[in-house]
Amino acid sequence: MAPDDRALIERVARRDESAFGELVGRYQGRLFTVAHRLLGNRADAEDAVQRAFLNCYLRSDTYDARWQVSTWLYRVLTNVCVDELRRRKTVGFPVETPDAGPIVEKPGQHLDLRRALEKVPTEARLLLALRYVDGLSYGELAKIRGISINTVKSQLARGKSILRKALQ
């Protein structure tokens, strides 16, 4: 039987690399998808996921056992992604630029959605990504971003309302 997430984290805190490998394997797909959709290119998304897991590896002793491991990982990842988005807004000559290449459209997906999502404020976009990648509850979203459940609901509603208007 596979060990549960909390047991894995305890082993990671003791620098058990095989446990860390298993933890990464369990969550990398979902974390990578959130990062990719938020940051817009694979290279930045991969770097963000690496940095998030790196923080988890180096600071696994600060993990609070009252948290679900997935909630904790999403908190760490969103902290990394949000700071990357801040860095892109700042002036200076850019070290790297977001991927401006063509978007591969999936069946049923509208090309305009990505452009419309760019109009959604950062906090609302982040909540939408977490909600739709992993189906997280309002309570989990509130915990990940350190906000109230009512704020989560209003941010999601605001984000969707902006999308609806942009897609009309």
Partner: peptide, 15 residues
């Protein structure tokens, strides 16, 4: 949104 945020494979040998 559900289609846009569907999970995709992560890069290999990440750990």
């Amino acid at each position: 949104l559900a289609a846009h945020f569907s999970v995709e494979p992560a890069p290999a040998e990440l750990a």
